[in-house]
């Protein structure tokens, strides 16, 4: 177990180093100079030089890269070029609102998707199954933006069932603002998840152990809930767990349309404004989340499937 973790950590470090190197190279070779973006329309050579000095952009590249690596180790990325806000402040302010949206939406979507796919697999090939598949495909085919525009216009503005947009820190008020975005998230993701999970569950239906269980006279409910579901959990978990760390990154479109001050738009904003400190922080964060997601998935494999041992 210890060797496994050590190997994983070393592997993770090499991934983070690789990501850091790629991001740094891309930014400095292709990205160009951020000072003109910061200075705006009255930039000139002298002011640009002053700012480069101030932000350490005149230092040799290897010095800047070592500084970047140091930032990764210390988790101190300094301040955003665009807003002068400290990166940790940006992250800490954004994670809560993003999770307020994504966590309940994700949990409800997953529970519903597993239940519906189990239900669909139970009636495999029958009208109910086909209807569920049809609805899932339809759900996946509609663009995300259409759900948002329609939901906000019809359910919030026309019917007045929800506030049009907003976010609040008090729980009661926050729920009021989040119900519609959560509903939209669920609708957007449900079809995809149902189809995906149904495939795994259906694969298990004709396995030997299922036949054995039925031969032993177990009820269909027991066969489904105790045997099929349990065995389908490994691929389902892979899909589900790997997404969990990314929930803190929120959702760009939903957050923008519903004015949820999460992390959804932080990376896009940072790229658009050449805000390198934020880009650095967010890419490192994403790499780490990816690694954590894989690590948790590996560990859970062993929990769910006793045949898998962590070595």
């Amino acid at each position: 177990m210890r060797r496994y973790f050590l190997r994983k950590i070393l592997h993770s470090l090499s991934i983070i180093f690789g990501v850091a190197l790629i991001i740094f190279t891309l930014f400095h070779v292709i990205g160009g100079d951020p000072v003109y973006e910061i200075l705006g329309k009255y930039a000139n050579a002298e002011r640009a030089q002053d700012l480069r000095n101030e932000y350490g952009l005149n230092k040799p590249l290897w010095t800047q890269f070592i500084l970047y690596l140091k930032q990764i180790v210390t988790f101190d990325y300094g301040r955003s070029y665009a807003t002068r806000q400290s990166i940790s402040e940006i992250l800490s302010n954004g994670i809560g609102p993003s999770l307020s949206l994504t966590l309940p939406a994700f949990v409800i979507t997953t529970v519903l998707a597993v239940s519906i796919s189990l239900f669909s697999a139970f009636f495999r090939g029958k009208l109910t199954d086909r209807l569920i598949l049809l609805l899932s495909v339809l759900g996946m085919s509609v663009p995300v933006l259409a759900y948002i525009l329609f939901g906000q216009y019809f359910l919030a503005y026309k019917l007045g069932l929800f506030p049009i947009s907003g976010y609040a820190h008090s729980l009661g008020e926050r729920i009021s603002y989040l119900v519609l975005p959560v509903l939209i998230w669920i609708v957007i993701n449900l079809g995809y998840d149902v189809r995906y999970f149904r495939v795994f569950i259906s694969k298990e239906l004709n396995q030997d152990y299922v036949r054995t269980a039925r031969a032993k006279g177990l009820s269909e409910v027991s066969v489904f809930t105790k045997h099929i579901l349990r065995n389908s959990l490994v691929p389902i978990l892979t899909n589900v767990v790997i997404q969990i760390p990314f929930l803190i990154l929120g959702s760009l479109l939903i957050e923008n349309f519903f004015s949820i001050p999460g992390l959804g738009s932080v990376i896009v904003d940072a790229i658009n404004s050449r805000d390198f400190p934020v880009i650095k922080a967010m890419t490192t964060l994403v790499s780490m989340l990816f690694i954590i997601g894989h690590l948790i998935t590996d560990l859970l494999y062993a929990v769910v499937d006793p045949r898998i041992k962590i070595q």
Binding site: I108, V111, S115, L161, F162, G172, I175, S176, V179
Partner: peptide, 21 residues
């Protein structure tokens, strides 16, 4: 029971939403 719980949660949330707004 589980489904009912999810539905009630949603219904309550929507109700709270309307009231608080």
């Amino acid at each position: 029971q589980g489904i009912t719980a999810v539905c009630i949660t949603f219904f309550l949330a929507i109700t709270v939403a309307g009231c608080s707004s």
